[in-house]
Design a protein around this nucleic acid. Sequence first.
DNA 1: TCTGGGGTCCTAGGACCC
DNA 2: TCTGGGGTCCTAGGACCC
Length: 420
Amino acid sequence: MSYALIDGNCFYVSCERVFNSKLEGKPVVVLSNNDGCVITRSSEAKLLGVKMGVPWYQLKDFAKKHRLIAKSSNYALYGDMSARMMSVLSSFSPDQEIYSIDECFLGMQGFANYDLTDYGQAIKKKVKQWIGLPVCVGFGSTKTLAKFANNTAKKRPEFRGVCNLGQLSATELNELLASTDVRDVWGIGYQWSKRLNAIGIATAKDLRDADPATLRRKFSVVVERTVLELRGVACLAFDEVAPPKKQIIFSRTFGEYISSLSELEEAVTAYTANAAVKLRRQDSVAGLIQVSLRTNPFREDQPQHQPHLGLQLVVPSSDTRVLVEMALHALRRMFKNGYAYQKAAVMLMDISQDTATQATLFSCETGNPALMKTMDKINTRWGKGTVKLAAEGVDQYWQMRREMISPSYTTSWNGLPVAR
DNA sequence: TCTGGGGTCCTAGGACCC
DNA sequence: TCTGGGGTCCTAGGACCC
């Protein structure tokens, strides 16, 4: 069995470029929600030395000087482009696992007679032609090796965007592994890479050749599995259908600080409604809802308050009104006057499929599934927010800032590109 | 003075991913 | 002034049970 991993090159920037050719060849970054910090960089921006995660306000002067272009993130656009890309990719294998917004695995079982390097080039070409997005392709006998191959295809121009490990000699593979920092192995983050370095494991090759049992003892079973995966022993499952989420979070920084309870109530109501939509989309109900608030932790000069409170529902529910009632209850218990709150989050937990719900003896209010379904249908058909609870507020001053956002070219009539 | 052993469940915290 | 959002898995330790 072998796997392909296809990954969009600086995906968000590439999505912007599809509809705005002026961004081509220029240093571009896409910012996180609220225009907070850099989350995607074009290769030109990387060359300028722009680091991942830098706060935008620290970069403004630099951007002016170096003609760095910033875009607010436009998830309506990226989500839609992602769906199109995934649909094209699904035509290249019967088995697809969508791993994130910009990457998927394909199962390559039954492709033994194919030249996978050619096949990878064909994939790359079709996605570029049909969707307009540049991708790289990596092939390996485990997911971790496919990831490694993809990473190699990205970094080394001589591979022309496609790396098939199966085609390499043992020497060539060793050379590639030896020239890859252990930090760049999928599953090894900053903390573990530091500790691995300390015991003499610096490269992907060192890690592959280390003793799995020792690493399990010193680190965890996760690191052991990574070692085995690098050796070609598959330890990670291929999930074709996304399993339902075990927790659902809706969390946003406000456009402006909020100090009043009534405005927080509006925001928490809206956040809960958003989380509930996600919950119903996977036909689930939640048994526990947690609300949290946060002041700006960077403002050490200001009083800090980061409360969170979870409340159990008597009967698990997905009804927005039931969930909102609980959320507001939690909010009112935590809220304190005199703080500038910067962010709120609503988290749904104890999630189960709604068919499995246990009825109570004294059948309590569990909500009205039919009404919720109708609401979701209307909002899908006529656009988000067509029908909502009045308590979500009308003005919504706390909505996030997105000062450099592009139109929703593919998902809104108003954003439709015009051909001249 | 002396104070078992084994199992389960839950939670918090730490690590990782994009 | 301005620092994102949304997930997963694993482990250790405490509570509790017999």
